[in-house]
Amino acid sequence: MSEADKQFNIHDYLREYLFPHFLCPGCGHGIALRALLWAIDELDIDKDRLAFVSGIGCSGRLGAYIDANTFHVTHGRPLAFATGLKLARPDLEVIVITGDGDCLAIGGNHLIHACRRNLNITCMMLNNEVYGMTGGQVSPTTSDDRFTTTTPYGNHEPVFDACALAEAAGAGLVGREITLQTPSLKDVLKQGLAHPGFSFIEVMSDCTEVFGRKNDLGSSAEMVLTQKASVRPDFLENAVDQPFRPHQIKTGILASNDRPEYAESYRNHIDAMKRDHGHA
């Protein structure tokens, strides 16, 4: 346990008066939230300056438990809301917590344009392959052949690679991590928070109660160990790409660039306009 971990006390960041929380036993979302708050703690960000924007679904409910300025908005729209909030209040550290359905399905258009603009927002997408809150329907990231309440004969739809999408759309920083590797997840999130542009971090979470049970994937521990086994080891880094099993999960910082940050570039354009047109 590192020095930093000893000092980090998650209770400092939670609205524990709302407990018991609503997460199911074995859900990976709580670990992801811990890693996020740990990263924030290490970066020493003032809670009054923290703004969390979340959408609808299990991921969307996390915000309420954080002792910060929290906005639980409409389904798929947290990035749109966060864009307005950040532009109005550049002094805030704006963090979006979203899920695979919220971010990639109903909110997919907002994701690609948030990546393109590169406004300084950190987006943590919790990918548990399923719509858990509504009872376990197929999502854009549900794996091949998995059973859900709307794929009773197994899923035949292709899987969205959210990180590849974010990178292609121009996100300033793209990373992915599994919950079992919590310190690494914290580090990836920390880099995301520190990056001056738009950061997209995919967290491979797990839904034991709904998705795991339906697909006979065992306990939460078994599910995360299976995930761990799927992580592509470093020595395969340069191997011919195999986007699907085995070893399909690439982790760590997957892409970064130094494209201009949106708000800064907006201000620069306005300053130039004022110089050119004599508007002081």
Binding site: F71, T74, L79, A80, G84, L85, A88, L92, N109, H113
Partner: peptide, 23 residues
């Protein structure tokens, strides 16, 4: 701040974010 968003839904979302920011 003026921003042309990616769609009508996002425009409405963005003004609510800005309003909650105090504008």
């Amino acid at each position: 701040v003026f921003i042309q968003m990616e769609d009508e839904i996002a425009s409405m979302g963005a003004i609510l974010g800005a309003s909650m920011g105090g504008m």
